[in-house]
Amino acid sequence: MSLKFHTFSAEETIDLGKKIGNFLKKGDIIAMQGTLAAGKTTITKGIAQSLGITEEITSPTFCLISEYEGKMPLYHMDVYRLDGGEDFINLGVEDFIYGNGVSLIEWSEKVIDELPKKTIILKIVPVEGTTEREITLENWPYGEIN
């Protein structure tokens, strides 16, 4: 199933993240795609809140993987600095993406071939000159989000 949303502020993007997060189950993987400053970390903040995570969510650009504890673990990855799928696998990500938590992968375009077919694709496209974001969920297994 594919779903499309429009948000008009960071707060609305966080709220959508909360709604998405309320559906997620252990082992879910979300491959996030979007340009620099599209809102990938912003929507991650909402997903984290829905999982009961109270820590500050920041982009893991320099540490590559941040792990947060809540109702279930959240593994927030940023693969921007990697050269591709081999580097991704060499990080030991199998423990995360096949683990007991939810994995969110920013810049997933670089490693998409290494992810399972069940991976949820989340695309964020900023509307130029505005705070609007077009957000698409592909391969979404849980039905409508209200």
Rank of each mutant, 00 (worst) to 15 (best):
1 M>P: 10
8 F>P: 00
11 E>H: 10
12 E>C: 09
15 D>E: 15
16 L>Q: 11
17 G>T: 12
19 K>C: 11
20 I>H: 11
22 N>K: 14
23 F>A: 06
25 K>L: 15
25 K>Q: 15
28 D>P: 04
35 T>S: 12
36 L>Y: 06
37 A>R: 12
37 A>C: 12
38 A>R: 00
38 A>V: 06
42 T>F: 01
43 I>S: 06
45 K>A: 12
48 A>T: 10
51 L>E: 09
51 L>A: 07
51 L>R: 04
52 G>N: 07
54 T>D: 13
55 E>T: 10
57 I>K: 08
58 T>P: 02
60 P>I: 03
60 P>H: 03
61 T>N: 05
61 T>A: 08
63 C>E: 13
64 L>V: 15
68 Y>T: 06
69 E>N: 13
69 E>P: 00
70 G>D: 04
70 G>F: 01
72 M>A: 08
73 P>Y: 05
73 P>W: 05
75 Y>F: 15
77 M>C: 10
80 Y>A: 04
81 R>H: 10
81 R>P: 07
82 L>F: 05
87 D>N: 10
88 F>R: 01
90 N>K: 15
93 V>H: 02
94 E>P: 02
94 E>N: 14
97 I>Y: 15
102 V>E: 08
102 V>P: 06
104 L>P: 00
106 E>H: 05
108 S>L: 08
109 E>Y: 02
112 I>N: 07
113 D>C: 11
114 E>N: 12
116 P>H: 14
121 I>N: 09
121 I>L: 14
124 I>K: 01
126 P>I: 04
127 V>D: 10
130 T>N: 07
131 T>D: 15
132 E>W: 03
133 R>H: 12
135 I>D: 02
137 L>F: 04
138 E>C: 04
143 G>V: 11
144 E>P: 00
146 N>D: 12
146 N>Y: 10
